[in-house]
Design a protein around this nucleic acid. Structure first.
Length: 475
RNA sequence: GGCCCGUUGGUGAAGCGGUUUAACACACAUGCCUUUCACGCAUGCAUUCACGAGUUCAAAUCUCGUACGGGUCACCA
């Protein structure tokens, strides 16, 4: 059987949107599930949109997530080069072939004329389509105008009758009437190929067997098919993925920048690679059973195209948090520290804190932590001089008499010489004996004094971590 | 507007003509556990699959229409 080859073909125009990464993931999964190859190709035919450094972003993002490519610009491969601008001459050759065969033609219509056509179409309220004026030009005239240095593009000649059908692996049979299709430009006036054309050529030359991409390409796929046919090439399988939409609720947006979720933002917030992969795999795809936690390797094993859904999906941050919490809980102390301590460093002065102290601090929150940056808010009470008291805590204090507990606590705390958790527990027990108060009325005043809140991690540990001096101050 | 596609609870979704009174997970609610929170556990949460009609003994599942949503109609990718 023929080797399955898929590709991820991003443009270096900025950051990696969540949807793009999901496309890469699925593409990777389809290849790997079938023991095939996953190829990375950079599509930079539009030089005006190139963003400095974005190729590195692509590399880093993919590598971080474990989506390693078998062939690509940096590691090469037998189908290279893997950057489209370096394949420029290739495309011209193929375009020339189509012209020779009468399946493509030079077009000299300038932008003004095209503008006019669009305006007219607009006024008549009919869809704009290039009228094919330059189809009729004879060879001599074309020759002459090229020699005179007139600018031109090369257009593919679409059939004007019949229909084109292709079988999408997700959406099924899709039929389009050829008359709807425009004579699309395959070579631009700067002699660079258009995205569509370069795509087709490269996919063919690189032996790509399965084209995985967002469903915004469904409408243009018939044009692809026609070009494949014009060359007499095998038509690859098409797998169009449903789009991941933005969060509707503005509060839940992943980014302040207009809700565009990028992997960078997720990483900045301290989401683990495993969770991002796991989450992405499950938006727009289902294994068909109840399993939800998947490692990349497990995904490779079970991934199947038939599990891809047709409807668009919304990226649910709550669910991501759940996944992430799941993975955070499996972290070793060391890994947990690596994840969280950088956030503390950024927000607080850690110079006097020992690493053991930090380790303990962070580990009391391991069970509930949803993402790395959350640690900042969670541990606030250990760093701030002025405690903020929650309203519910204040209200609670009104309902009981706290004087005895607090004053005894102070006495007991001062008495402790060897500051450790054990002695703190003893101190609390002493308060219980001396005042005769127990349960909630005992612990709550202490907790509120210590943290300003009614909820929090285990009390003795909290007190221990807070430190004797700071505690006495608070009392 | 033309063309293409989609629509199962707040979210991701299972379901592919008949033991489905529509899985499961997130979120939410309540209870248990806990000094509290979190974790964990238990329970609840769509009498119904956008709506209408048709096919059928039988439809969330097939067909058609309507509504809503998305995509596309560039010398952008």
């Amino acid at each position: 059987m023929k080797e399955i080859r898929t590709r991820f073909a991003p443009s270096p125009t900025g950051f990696m949107h969540i949807g793009g990464v999901r496309t890469a993931l699925f593409s990777y999964l389809i290849a790997k599930h079938n023991n095939g190859s996953f190829i990375l190709r950079i599509e930079d035919t539009d030089q005006t949109r190139y963003v400095e450094g974005s190729i590195e972003v692509i590399y880093n993002t993919l590598r971080d997530l474990g989506l390693n490519w078998d062939e690509g610009p940096d590691i090469g491969g037998k189908y290279g080069p893997y950057v489209q601008s370096e394949r420029k001459n290739n495309y011209l050759k193929y375009a020339q072939q189509l012209i020779d065969e009468g399946q493509a033609y030079y077009c000299f219509c300038n932008e003004d004329r095209l503008e006019d056509l669009k305006k007219i179409a607009n006024n008549k309220k009919i869809p704009y389509k290039y009228d094919g004026k330059c189809r009729e030009l004879n060879i001599n005239e074309v020759q002459k105008r090229i020699e005179e240095g007139e600018k031109y593009v090369i257009r593919f000649q679409m059939p004007r009758t019949g229909k084109t059908i292709f079988d999408d692996k997700v959406y099924g049979k899709i039929t389009v009437h050829n008359i709807e299709l425009e004579d699309l430009i395959i070579i631009k006036s700067d002699l660079m190929p258009t995205y569509n054309f370069a795509n087709i050529i490269d996919d063919h030359e690189m032996d790509i067997t399965h084209i995985v991409r967002g469903n915004e390409f469904v409408s243009s796929t018939p044009k692809y098919v026609l070009i494949y046919q014009a060359f007499g090439w095998n038509i690859p399988e098409f797998i169009h993925l449903p789009v991941i939409k933005k969060e509707k609720d503005s509060d839940k947006k992943l980014s302040k920048r207009d809700g565009d979720a990028t992997v960078e933002i997720l990483k900045e917030k301290g989401y683990l690679n495993e969770s991002i992969i796991n989450m992405l795999a499950l938006t727009g795809w289902s294994p068909g059973n109840e399993k939800e936690i998947f490692s990349l390797n497990e995904l490779i094993e079970v991934f199947d195209i038939s599990g891809i859904s047709k409807g668009n999906a919304i990226f649910d941050v709550d669910k991501l948090n759940w996944f992430n919490n799941n993975y955070i809980r499996k972290l070793s102390i060391k890994e947990l520290c690596q994840l969280t301590i950088p956030y503390l460093q950024k927000s607080y002065d850690l110079t006097e804190k020992s690493s053991l102290w930090l380790e303990k601090l962070v580990s009391i929150y391991q069970e509930q932590l949803s993402y790395g940056a959350e640690i900042i808010e969670l541990t606030k009470l250990f760093f701030e001089e002025e405690l903020e008291y929650d309203k519910e805590a204040l209200d609670y204090l009104q309902t009981i008499d706290t004087k005895a507990v607090i004053s005894t606590l102070k006495e007991e705390i001062i008495k402790i010489n060897d500051w450790n958790e054990e002695n703190i527990v003893k101190a609390i027990n002493n308060i219980k004996e001396k005042t005769g108060i127990k349960g909630k009325p005992l612990f709550m005043p202490i907790r509120i004094c210590v943290s300003g809140k009614m909820h929090g991690p285990e009390l003795p540990m909290t007190i221990f971590l807070l430190g004797k001096e700071k505690l006495i101050k608070r009392l």
